[in-house]
Design a protein around this nucleic acid. Structure first.
Lengths: 226, 226
DNA sequence: CCGCTATTCCTTGCATACAAGAACACTACG
DNA sequence: CGTAGTGTTCTTGTATGCAAGGAATAGCGG
């Protein structure tokens, strides 16, 4: 039995207690509502047994996150993201995760680094075992551990925002079950880890960006604008 | 006489029409309220002749931007940012602006590039004339033009958020009036421009990051964590 | 004089009533 | 048959009333 956890989830996004916002977001992310579908305040209020006021606050935030569109005096709709936006988000992801890798590489031995080491080992095992589901989960944790390991709370916040926008399309986490890609991905993770261990912040950033780029390329179908 | 502007402000942040939010933000940024000072909903509502509801929405957003702190059932206060947060924000700034420079360098000739060319020339003139006020304005425009020139709307959004948090401390825009630094800064701008003109996205990113780092170092007093 | 307690006043949080605008359907007219 | 006009009904936007909780203060007991 454990008391209060001394070290919080290194491989997970920071918790956000705003439960109503999270629940409505889950509704959009989970695919309960399709893009273009109206999202009535009154209905949501009844659904969650609260008044319109807190629902409105949550919707306003979701609009800022880019998940929905509020047309004044008309209605609220689930947004249909353009392909261009997705590419833009991946470019940003590349930049932020690369930055995080570089920052982490400057830090020396930290709990995050140890977490990463275990994660990479487990990843390689999962890859060898062809357990793509577990591999996907480990990949997810790898990226979060890296960003958390940057020790930059503002970077983490922006990354969280970014991932909320990306999670939308259910592109992330759904690791491509291509054995070749999994193998390559696993190697890229190890390379990033190696660079961090060597405190090569420049190399770590480059390796991480290359990895994100390769993953995005796989997901998006091989083209990258500009 | 011009019709609808074909090209919007290349050297300025994108407009945000949410006037109440902007006005309250200006109150905080402008120094009307000092850190720690309470910011009553009722008072603000009277001040702007609206009800508490829209004020609350604006405050909630300002809290998400990190400018204020809402303590439930207690009060709303202007936040006192820690030095660490400022350093974190500058690290992020370096990453985002570097990314933008790299993206812009891939794009070839664009209106943004032409704007940047004129900006650098004007900057050098202002530097030579020791007109530090005009120089500060041109620096501001340089950075915004560069980010806008990345052609990545999501990057611009995140950058805007970041700058809202930074503008807070009135550290930005208040260019250090050190002639030596101005001269160096001007040279760094030209270098970035050169790299973009040469379509050297790698060099452009590096040059921009170096520039941001140098500026931050000057502003923050020479130390950088990790 | 000091410590404790209860009360009062302050804040934000939530629910609801009302206002305003936009979309749509229906009707009347060309 | 098409079209312009109008009225209804939906939506969100705003104002306000009430509830709940925290903080400070005044009063009381030691």
């Amino acid at each position: 039995m454990q008391g209060i956890a001394e070290v919080s989830n290194l491989g997970a996004p920071p918790p956000s207690d705003d439960s109503l916002l999270a629940r409505i977001r889950e509704l959009v992310l989970g695919g309960t509502y399709s893009p273009g579908e109206p999202l009535s305040e009154i209905f949501l209020a009844q659904q969650f047994d609260v008044s319109r006021t807190p629902v409105r606050e949550a919707l306003k935030q979701l609009e800022r996150e880019g998940l929905i569109e509020i047309r004044p005096k008309v209605g609220t709709y689930v947004r249909e993201p353009t392909k261009r936006e997705i590419v833009e988000l991946f470019q940003l992801k590349e930049g932020l995760e690369g930055l995080a890798a570089g920052l982490m590489a400057r830090r020396g031995r930290t709990p995050s680094l140890e977490f990463l080491e275990k994660n990479v080992k487990a990843s390689e095992a999962a890859a060898a075992a062809r357990d793509s589901e577990r591999y996907a989960q480990l990949v997810h944790e790898f990226h979060w551990a890296l960003v958390n390991g940057s020790d930059n709370t503002k970077l983490v916040e922006h990354y969280k925002l970014l991932m909320n926008q990306l999670a939308f399309h259910r592109l992330v986490l759904k690791t491509v079950e291509n054995p070749l890609r999994i193998s390559a991905s696993s190697g890229e993770h190890r390379l990033v880890l190696q660079m961090i261990q060597d405190k090569d912040h420049f190399g770590a950033e480059a390796a991480m960006r290359n990895h994100v780029y390769a993953s995005a390329r796989e997901l998006l179908g091989g083209h990258r604008d500009a």
